[in-house]
Design a protein around this nucleic acid. Structure first.
Length: 271
DNA sequence: AGGCGTACCTGAGGGC
DNA sequence: TGCCCTCAGGTACGCC
């Protein structure tokens, strides 16, 4: 499931590989995955020159010379894969393909068909509903504390809400709460100042460490070169039910919070 | 307004 | 062995 570190890794790989290339043509094999519609999408990217590839929340964002952008959300199983000019085989679950003028390709593949590629006209706002970038300078301890203020939702659900903070998903929410020793069911606004500060630091720490390792591959995730990440070997709590807590050795449990599997330690994430 | 439940999908895995 | 059922999950959307 690509979250911030995985999307950042993909965007960096794409930046190295496709910036400076020109898109000759887009082929759309599954019409519903391109927005606003296939004809507009194909016309909007044809002939475009790629200037930058970046990330906003869990979106990969391509910016073209004209100012037009394409924002890609991979949801759970989406992949953006760089393919060499001599790679002319069919790719499983390939929904969209960009053909570059140098003969190389970019494939958007997605088993579950949830991922989307959205064409954005120059100047058109698209990310207003997304919250703060947790690794940005604006995400201060005080700003985080303000966001939590008065919220009754469980802290785990709060962390997953992209309108507040953008980019955190199930894996890093579980890991950060464990690192900060906070019970995931705790009402967000009821956290003490000390715990808010611990959680703020834990979020930044776990996201940075995961980026360094190229993201977490527990399931389908691979980067733009088709390689798995390394942070799955560093996970303390996510997916570890029945294992011993690395901090206190109590058994890790799995419960459901906000309709999501949640792994935590009842012993050292007590409040 | 905020919080909650459900639809969207397919593959994996458990039960019989 | 093989079929059927359930579950997994990020987000949009509808409802209360």
């Amino acid at each position: 499931m690509p979250e911030l570190p995985e999307v950042e890794t993909i965007a960096r790989g794409l930046s190295r590989a496709v910036v400076g290339k020109t898109i000759d043509e887009a082929k759309v094999f599954l019409p519903k995955v391109v927005l606003p519609d296939p004809a507009t999408f194909r016309a909007g990217v044809a002939g475009e020159h790629i200037c930058t590839v970046g990330r906003r929340g869990k979106f990969v964002v391509f910016t073209f010379a004209s100012g037009t952008r394409v924002a890609v959300h991979l949801r759970m199983t989406g992949r953006l894969l760089i393919r060499r000019a001599d790679d002319n085989g069919t790719y499983p679950y390939e929904n969209v393909r960009w053909l570059f003028s140098d003969g190389s390709l970019l494939s958007f593949a997605d088993i579950r068909q949830f991922g989307r590629m959205r064409l954005i006209e120059p100047g058109q706002p698209w990310d207003e509903i997304l919250g703060l970038e947790p690794l940005s300078r604006r995400f201060t301890r005080d700003r985080f504390s303000e966001l939590l203020q008065g919220r009754t939702t469980p802290i785990k659900a709060f962390l997953l809400d992209q309108r507040r903070i953008a980019g955190i998903g199930n894996i890093y929410a579980c890991e950060a709460l464990w690192e900060a020793r906070i019970r995931p069911t705790r009402a967000a606004g009821s956290l003490s100042r000390e715990r808010r500060e611990r959680l703020h630091a834990a979020l930044q720490s776990v996201l940075r460490r995961a980026i360094t390792m190229g993201g977490t591959s527990v399931d389908d995730y691979v980067n733009a070169d088709g390689e798995r990440g390394g942070f799955q070997n560093e996970l303390s709590i996510y997916g570890q039910d029945g294992e011993a807590c690395p901090r206190c050795s109590a058994a890790i449990v799995r419960t459901v919070i906000a309709q999501r599997g949640t792994w935590w330690c009842r012993s050292c994430q007590r409040s």
